[in-house]
Design a protein around this nucleic acid. Structure first.
Lengths: 342, 342
DNA sequence: CTGTTAGCGCTTTCAG
DNA sequence: CTGAAAGCGCTAACAG
């Protein structure tokens, strides 16, 4: 009873209506020059017979897949799931298909994902790079074929590809300046892999703010980790062992900041009195934890939408456009964790 | 300079090596019966010429896409992003491609997603239903074609399709019983659309626990909403207007529970003394909020993996197997929000 | 072990 | 406005 029935093709429709497959093909699209009447008959028959166009055949013929690929380091992070939701929204609105894979922060896997996407003949690619991805040679093949590739958040330094990102330097500069204004003189930054633009920029913004305020930069006060909640705990433990405690902590990721802060609180430190705190991302956690965490708001959903929109635009107007980066806004969200009432 | 170069096909390789395309095709796979030597020459040439198999052509020929489709209500929820990460992990391990779309809780969009998936000739489909999806007729076409469809979390009542889920009835029964044991006598349940198995089962589990403990069921104490954080606020406002306050609140979603709890706390109520609280899902928020929220732990990543694994299994062994539901474990996580020290 | 042939389902000239 | 025919790139018989 469950035999994989024969597919309904345009030939079946053609036969039934005693017309040619070519006409059916035309009728199903809005091709110029098709009798209104036959068109209606075709559409009716298609509906009745349960016809569904075979996208392989049509893609093969058209050399166009209508598929957008996305490669991200990790699907299950607050930021990424927001970004992907934004991408999906745009892609489905444009009647395109979305294929997704994750590199799990592994460069080898990233290369594999790219190859799979290439075989799938995607029409465009959105990428947020894995931790250690410096080289972007594995995306050059797309360019050679004329397939647009756009990076977002974790972008490529290769100016050949456009990237959507926020001004991480400026955001970090603002956070650090704010902490200094609250009286902090010994600010620790917990950040991530310096191969990534986002973390390198955040470190530089921090350094610049220190310099501009006459505070010497102390490399001892920079901790580079994976920024996971577990890393936050480790960072707190290391801090508790320091001879001289910092009076401000700027963790470039909220989840890491929150777990770090909790350990320090349990150890008896008062936030923000003993140590002022700031994170990055405006994770929902930040407005639940006590005291609420100062952070940088940075809309993933919107970034996904913008990236997808730009990509889709290039799909339809492939005329050579100089690749340019797009800078999205961000905002410093000041909350109690860094506010020292004077 | 960026002309979309001609694709390299097996014919190009064949011509170069003076052999037939069929041999090249065989050589590229591990088809039985191919000269080791020619195979090596083929692989070398392919690599050198930058050949990438065209999956449309091969899919068209094979009537097999190696694509798994996923339709979920919303990509950007903690649970869903976990589940999707688990699915992706399994799918990519099996060397399949994943296409994803979201129904945004809209039945019409869900139908559209299903049609798009159908056109894309996916080999298997994973679905978590939209809020109002009762009817699953739009998935019957897959069955007719022999494409396996498996539901997860928000499953179908149609026993024709297998579903992966947890025992929502039992979990709710446990939560409610726990609240009763803590001395609650007037427990409010905030839950979601009763068309969905997950929420209907949670309500039934709650009712059963009341009955088993001799507490009369009061329909006034059941509030059905979308369970968003905003809904949590509204629920709190409605509670504050009640003549007689509940002494326990069981919200079937953590985010909703958290925002509800915050409003009540701001109104001066003590948790758990005045009102004991429990949520559902074990969202990271629950162990940040004060007091920590009692909840039900329920692993999205694992559910995604199990669903994908089962689907992939059926792909390769399409022999008729009676569809059966798979029940995954859950655990009651008791925290301070419901613990009344006696 | 390898070549020939046919065709998956669709689109698109080119003629009518 | 419609039909005939060719071909996108690959693979599975079927012969050799």
């Amino acid at each position: 009873m469950e035999k994989p029935e024969k597919e309904v093709t345009i030939y079946d429709i053609a036969k039934k209506l005693n017309i040619s497959a070519a006409t059916v093909s035309r009728g199903l699209k809005d091709r110029a020059g098709t009798n209104k009447d036959t068109k209606k008959r075709i559409l009716d028959a298609a509906l009745e017979m349960g016809y569904q166009s075979n996208s392989f055949a049509s893609n093969l013929r058209n050399k166009r897949s209508n598929i957008i690929g996305v490669i991200v380091p990790k699907l299950n992070s607050v930021f990424m799931s927001q970004a992907i939701a934004g991408i999906e929204q745009q892609v489905s609105e444009a009647n395109l298909t979305l294929i997704i894979s994750q590199s799990l922060e592994d460069v080898k896997k990233e290369v594999g994902c790219a190859e799979a996407m290439y075989s799938n003949r995607i029409d465009g690619l959105l990428v947020s790079l894995a931790y250690e991805s410096k080289d972007t040679a594995h995306f050059e093949s797309f360019t050679r074929r004329g397939t647009p590739v756009i990076f977002f958040d974790r972008i490529s330094e290769n100016r050949h590809f456009p990237g959507i990102h926020i001004d991480n330097f400026k955001a970090a500069y603002e956070v650090t300046t704010h902490l200094i204004q609250q009286g902090c003189k010994r600010i620790l930054q917990a950040t991530g892999n310096q191969l990534q633009n986002v973390y390198a920029d955040r470190l530089n913004g921090y350094k610049q703010a220190l310099a501009d305020n006459g505070i010497p930069y102390d490399p001892q006060l920079v901790m580079v980790t994976g920024l996971s909640p577990e890393d936050g705990i480790k960072i707190a433990e290391r801090i508790l062992l320091m001879k001289e405690l910092p009076d401000g902590i700027f963790a470039t990721n909220d989840q890491c900041a929150v777990s770090c802060m909790q350990v320090l609180q349990k150890a008896g430190l008062k936030i923000p009195e003993d140590i002022a705190f700031a994170g990055f991302n405006n994770d929902p956690l930040t407005s639940i934890i006590e005291p609420n965490l100062t952070t940088v708001n940075y809309k993933g959903y919107e970034m996904g939408q913008v990236a997808a929109k730009l990509l889709i635009e290039r799909l339809y107007t492939p005329e050579k456009r100089s690749p340019a980066n797009v800078l999205l806004g961000h905002e410093l969200v000041v909350r109690e964790s860094s506010l020292r009432k004077k």
